[in-house]
Amino acid sequence: MSRRKAKNGFRLTLSYIVLVILAISAVYPALWVILGSLRPGKSLYSKTLIPSSLTFEHYRELFTSKSYLFGNWYMNTLKISILSMLIGIFLTLLTSYAVSRFRFRGRKTALSTILVLGMFPGFMSMIAIYLLLKEFNLLDTHLALIIVYAAGAPLGGTFIAKGFLDTIPRSLDEAARIDGASNFRIFIRIILPLSRPMLTYMALTQFVGPWVDFIFAKMILRSKEKWTVAVGLYDMVSSNTNTNFTLFAAGAVLIAVPITILFMFLQKFLVEGLTSGASKG
């Protein structure tokens, strides 16, 4: 018995050590960037983690300097991310609801196609998408990014959403149909309220993807005033003549703010959805 307690104690201690190491590995770089954004000068290098003096000059410079359009880039990214998230969630929910609740010809083929397409990296289709957008005169527009981000959402989220919708009892649908509810009314009044845990996950993933994307946004957007934050920050430090890394760190901190707020806000709804989304008999 004592040997088992000692073994369990060793495992528990080892688990805590690993968790502490992982926590330090995750927190230390983020803390360095945050403090670096408050450090005077242009270099991120410092002999100490905490700078001798703190300044918010870099944050002010981001929005006042004529060399950068950070405020414009920030609003562009926010608009693209929010619209892509809303449209992408809507398309994913419709797709997953159809394959979860209905049986139709070609259903298995459609699921297999979505599964196979989801295995390929998105950048493999960038050239084809670029040529397609060029034919429709959508290059250098935010609409092009929104369409591509939203249209690609069902490829990554359909199976996750379908798996969750399969857990919702079909007896709820049948009871609603007896009362005369249509499929759309069932979807709006029953399926969506019970799907809040899944919706929170989809909202986070669909928002974060466009918010931090650089490759596709860099390829599509050409005008400086239409850039997203990721493209704009890259331009800050891409040339040898511009090495203002403390300004870059300030921009990186501002990028993390919406993601953090979104996660903290949706976390409450995640817990609420898990507790209130049960089927009551």
Score class of each variant (00 low, 15 high):
R101G: 00
I82F: 12
I89Y: 04
L111I: 14
L78W: 09
A98K: 01
L94N: 13
W73V: 03
T109R: 08
L93T: 13
K79F: 13
I87Q: 02
I89W: 06
L91P: 03
L94F: 14
G88H: 07
I80P: 14
F104I: 02
G88V: 07
R107T: 05
A98I: 15
R105C: 06
L111N: 13
T95H: 00
Y97N: 09
K79R: 13
R105V: 12
N72I: 11
L94T: 13
I80R: 06
M75K: 12
S84Y: 09
T92H: 07
L86H: 04
G106H: 04
F70E: 02
A110Q: 10
G71F: 09
R103K: 15
Y74P: 13
T77D: 05
W73I: 00
F104V: 04
L86Y: 04
R107N: 11
R101T: 07
F90D: 02
M75N: 00
T95C: 12
T95L: 08
S96M: 03
R105N: 07
R101A: 01
N76R: 04
Y74A: 02
T109A: 15
F90M: 13
M75E: 03
L83A: 12
R107Y: 01
S81F: 09
I82N: 09
F70L: 01
T77V: 03
K108F: 09
